[in-house]
């Protein structure tokens, strides 16, 4: 890989890819904005819709999630929110945690928390949607 200067077969782009403060290029930046655009619609819809559903107690929430449109909407909201918040929290960790060990541990913890939240949220939605 790192032979004498000028003898590497790798292109300059290939060498820097995966490096930098975050270990990635602008990928996180673009994905963060893609998620943001989706959440611009999903998040307000979820809050208003969930408040309406919650006013009907447990039955109200179940009836709400048994409507396919609502189940898909909530599932999408959970997925996109997890996607968006993982990138955001990664950025915060990368900015403030200098020690590479703790940084790696927190990044891993973030990934686990986000995946756990996503799986739990989707499972709950499907369980109610498919009628317990």
């Amino acid at each position: 890989m790192a032979g004498p200067a000028g003898t590497s077969q790798r292109t300059p782009l290939g060498r820097v890819r995966g490096l930098g403060a975050a270990g990635q290029g602008v990928g996180g930046y673009l994905r963060q904005r893609l998620g943001a655009v989706g959440l611009l619609i999903l998040a307000p819809w979820f809050v208003l819709s969930a408040i309406r559903a919650a006013s009907g107690g447990h039955e109200g929430v179940v009836a709400w999630l048994q409507q396919p449109v609502n189940a898909v909407g909530v599932a999408l909201f959970i997925l996109v929110a997890c996607f968006h918040m993982r990138i955001g929290m990664n950025t915060i960790i990368e900015d403030y945690i200098q020690k590479s060990g703790s940084r790696l541990a927190l990044l891993a913890l973030n990934a686990l928390v986000v995946v756990a939240a996503g799986v739990a949220g989707l499972y709950a939605v499907m369980m109610i949607g498919f009628g317990n």
Binding site: H58, A81, C82, G88, M89, A117, G121, V125, I128
Partner: peptide, 20 residues
């Protein structure tokens, strides 16, 4: 607020799990 929303979403998931 981004960090706060992170925690809030975990609350939403707890709420959904309780409903399920």
């Amino acid at each position: 607020t981004g960090a706060a929303n992170y925690v809030a979403l975990l609350g939403v998931v707890v709420w959904l799990m309780a409903a399920a």
